[in-house]
Simulated assay, not measured.
Amino acid sequence: MLDISGGYVALQNLYGEYSACLDAGDFERWPDFFLDECEYRIQARENYDRKLPLSILWLESRGMLKDRVYGIRETLYHDPYYQRHIVSAPRVIGVEGGEIRSEANYLVLRTKRDEFSEVFNAGRYIDVVRETPEGLRFKSRSCIFDSEVVKNSIIYPI
């Protein structure tokens, strides 16, 4: 059974390291935050609330996350930008069988060279995190964004 008192610090650290990895553009490390059998999705709040499965990105394994990283680095053409994640403290929804169900609000700022920073995406993470011998890893991460539209294509993970 996961000890949530000590596990909460580990959960906060997972969220912080995840954000730092993406903010540094270290996308090759991004899949390491997930189990081999995992789920990562970016979905509009409207679809989530209506229990509609349509997502703008839905990856169903760590291998698919690695493919996304390859696409970012090797095949997608886009105007590069920096991200900055501002993430609230995680709220633990439940703990059962070595898994934590948690949520946190997020705000992603985007900065292109020679431009002002702008709000790029805002919403909440809905996560299932599992305890492993290597530490906590995401079993699933749903990025539920509040807006009904996305300003541009989502290239980098949220």
Rank of each mutant, 00 (worst) to 15 (best):
A24N: 08
L59H: 04
V108C: 00
D32P: 10
P80H: 05
D127T: 12
V119T: 15
P31Q: 13
L22N: 07
A24H: 07
D32V: 11
S61K: 12
R29L: 13
E115M: 15
E131T: 07
N47G: 03
I126P: 00
L22I: 14
E103G: 07
F138K: 13
I42A: 04
L107H: 01
R130T: 12
G94Y: 02
L35M: 15
P157V: 09
H85P: 02
V119S: 13
A104G: 09
A122N: 10
D67L: 13
D79T: 13
S140E: 15
P53N: 06
F34A: 06
I144R: 00
D26P: 05
E118Q: 13
R130L: 09
Y156V: 04
R91P: 00
S19F: 00
D127A: 14
K66L: 11
A89V: 10
D36Y: 11
D26R: 14
K112C: 13
K66T: 12
R91G: 02
S55V: 06
V150P: 00
H78Y: 15
C143I: 08
E118H: 09
D32I: 10
E148M: 10
A10W: 00
R110L: 09
A44I: 06
I155P: 03
W58Q: 09
E17G: 08
R84E: 00
D79Y: 10
G63R: 13
L22T: 04
I144L: 01
R68G: 02
H78L: 06
Q83N: 01
V119P: 13
I93Y: 02
C143H: 02
P53S: 11
R62L: 07
A10R: 11
E96P: 03
P157M: 02
F34T: 07
H85A: 02
L2N: 03
E60V: 05
I126T: 02
Y77M: 10
L136M: 09
Q12V: 05
V92E: 00
R110N: 04
I126W: 00
T111I: 05
S88C: 04
N152M: 08
L35K: 14
W30Q: 09
F138E: 08
D32K: 14
F34L: 07
A24K: 11
K51E: 09
A89W: 03
S102N: 14
S153D: 13
R41T: 12
T132M: 10
